[in-house]
Design a protein around this nucleic acid. Structure first.
Length: 367
DNA sequence: TAGGCCATCTGGTCCT
DNA sequence: AGGACCAGATGGCCTA
């Protein structure tokens, strides 16, 4: 076995002959011990760890003082200059260290992936399609937010001793789902219920359902230009059991100025738009819906009932862009979609493609 | 074939 | 000094 040649613990090891030659043999033996990186199974990884541990023992033995095994004698402190190492030796040391670092990094990433897989299986998902890593993380955030909203609603109902208005979870899940392109500035949307404030990354709900009304099922989606309902990227949203299009029939019972939505969905599309603008697709058959909340970013948009002209849009709305029929979800029960161009009130984080702005700077207002 | 996703390698930085 | 962590680079695989 290879180890017997190089292992200081092996009988064949000559502790007195601790020369550079023997070290070279160590280095080459350790390299030979390194495990192929292709297709490592768990057992391979374990074996690899053992080999690495063995390597480390070899190295520490080699580096340890020669009298390490001797009885505790008073040692004479001798000032010695470190032996100059040959370039070959330095190279071998580097290679060995690098190899071990690679192994550790590989194992670390495997551990990360295993944890991600656990998270994946924890989340409700009716699809066979495996969620990507980023989808899993964002989905988990949304799911936690929805659960938090559920808890809050339950507590409110308990306080009022009235559970009659407790809707089906499918009807009230409030989910923020951000989907971004390759955006280095992007942030995961924080839980809408757990944070307040206006600084980047914070979420403030100024008024409306999240604070004082039953949960409602607005779906906001900053999309990268995917279709509405039929996009694979959207499908995984529904796997949580929450609707992309949801009922708001009880909204007006809880806030006087709130009217009802029968169905609505919000769809933000900032692809192919000028920088600073974003396109909002609104699908609603409801009448006036009044609410205001601060999304993690500072994008302001105002929405009334589906306007017949751009003039009905207030504040930051710059233009009205018609009816992108191609973006419509495949349903006949909803009115025609409208899309509006709204203005982003805060500068994007950095320059670059239109899609690169931070969601922590988005503010949405529905009036 | 381009783009997305992923695993791996690598060098740098921080921490113990 | 060595390990953990991170981000960039790279190449393979898959899919539209």
């Amino acid at each position: 076995m290879l180890l017997s040649l190089a292992d200081p613990e092996s009988p064949s090891f000559d502790h007195n002959n601790h020369s550079l030659d023997s070290f070279d043999r160590y280095a080459s033996d350790m390299e030979a011990m390194s495990v192929s990186t292709d297709d490592q199974s768990a057992s391979d990884a374990q074996e690899n760890n053992n080999v690495m541990a063995q390597q480390d023992r070899c190295m520490s033995k080699l580096m340890a003082p020669l009298d390490s095994g001797a009885p505790p004698k008073k040692k004479r402190i001798r000032k010695t200059r470190a032996k100059a190492k040959s370039p070959e030796l330095i190279q071998k040391l580097k290679t060995s260290r690098r190899q071990r670092a690679n192994d550790r990094e590989r194992n670390r990433m495997h551990g990360l992936n295993e944890a991600l897989e656990v998270l994946r299986t924890t989340l409700p998902n009716s699809s066979d399609a495996k969620m990507t890593k980023i989808e899993t993380l964002r989905y988990a955030c949304n799911y936690i937010s929805a659960l938090a909203a559920s808890v809050k609603l339950l507590e409110q109902s308990k306080d009022k001793h009235d559970f009659s208005e407790l809707p089906n979870p499918d009807d009230y899940a409030f989910m923020f789902n951000f989907q971004y392109s390759n955006d280095s500035q992007q942030e995961l949307s924080p839980s809408p219920l757990s944070r307040t404030g206006t600084s980047p990354g914070d979420v403030t709900f100024n008024s409306g359902p999240l604070d004082n009304s039953p949960p409602y099922a607005a779906q906001s989606q900053i999309s990268n230009g995917y279709g509405c309902m039929d996009s694979p990227k959207d499908n995984f949203l529904e796997h949580s059991g929450y609707h992309l299009l949801s009922n708001h029939h009880q909204l007006d019972q809880h806030q006087e100025n709130l009217k009802t939505f029968s169905q609505c969905s919000f769809f933000l599309d900032h692809q192919n738009m000028n920088q600073g603008d974003s396109k909002l697709h609104i699908n609603s058959s409801g009448s006036l819906y009044e609410n205001s909340f601060t999304f993690p970013s500072k994008m302001s948009l105002t929405y009334a009932t589906p306007p017949t002209s751009p003039g009905l849009m207030k504040n930051n709305v710059h233009s009205y862009s018609g009816h992108p029929r191609s973006m419509l979800p495949p349903t006949t029960s909803t009115p025609p979609h409208s899309s509006y161009i709204v203005h982003q009130t805060e500068p994007r984080f950095g320059l670059g493609p239109v899609s690169t702005y931070s969601p922590s700077q988005l503010q949405m207002s529905f009036l």
